[in-house]
């Protein structure tokens, strides 16, 4: 069987991207293999570990449970899109560095995206709420204490941040036309790692 290919337009970290993929291409694989954005990690590939979590139209979702073809016209934010405009670490990334929120780093991209959305929804979480924000992500190294501390620290940094400095929350999705300004390829791929 020769597989049909589908044209898919995505706005990834503010950049319009076009790809041609079979229907079974998972969003996680489209990002890593087709677009070279290997910051999104793949652990379990059945929704349990959270390593692949990205933001679609601003909301955290499992990239391993979505087919790229279903997202034509939508906006995706990966870990590469969490840095500030000047390429320095965003609030959640900075908090992870300060609080030692990672060891091997495999789970980290999924935590960073999840927490970015979590503190946007709840800018001043209690300790319990901070735990709740990361309850759906697994980490095999840290024992979670420093990750929870990083959630609280990230919220603090984001609150102190000059307005407009934080990566802006995605505008509500509108099929096709998404009010996102184009950025050049170069800027969008800075911070591409591991």
């Amino acid at each position: 069987m020769t597989e049909d290919l589908h044209d898919v337009r995505l706005i990834v970290n503010g950049v319009h991207r076009e790809l041609r993929v079979p229907a079974r291409r998972l969003l996680s694989d489209a990002l890593r293999h087709d677009l070279g954005l290997t910051g999104t990690h793949v652990g379990c590939e059945h929704g349990v570990c959270g390593a692949c979590t990205v933001l679609v139209d601003g909301a955290p979702v499992r990239a391993c449970l979505l087919f790229a073809v279903t997202l034509d016209g939508h906006e995706v934010t990966t870990v590469e899109g969490l840095t500030r405009d000047d390429g320095s670490l965003g609030p959640v990334q900075q908090a992870f560095a300060e609080c030692h929120g990672l060891q091997c780093g495999f789970c980290t991209p999924g935590f960073l995206t999840t927490i970015t959305a979590g503190i946007r929804a709840n800018p001043d979480p209690t300790h319990e709420e901070a735990r709740e924000i990361v309850a759906g992500n697994l980490c095999r190294c840290t024992g979670y204490q420093n990750i929870v501390a990083a959630v609280e620290r990230a919220a603090e940094i984001a609150r102190e941040d000059v307005p407009g400095d934080v990566p802006a929350p995605a505008s509500p999705p509108q099929d096709g036309q998404l009010g996102v300004e184009d950025r050049t390829e170069d800027q969008a791929t800075t911070g591409l790692g591991g």
Binding site: A23, R24, L26, E45, H46, G47, R62, C64, L65, L66, F67, T70
Partner: peptide, 26 residues
């Protein structure tokens, strides 16, 4: 039928199900 995919896609990824077509109702 493909709705949210949060039960179906794990089954597909693990190849516990192999439908010939997905009808995306979204």
């Amino acid at each position: 039928v493909l709705a949210g995919g949060q039960s179906l896609v794990p089954l597909l990824n693990m190849r516990l199900a192999a439908p010939t077509a997905l009808v995306d109702i979204n």
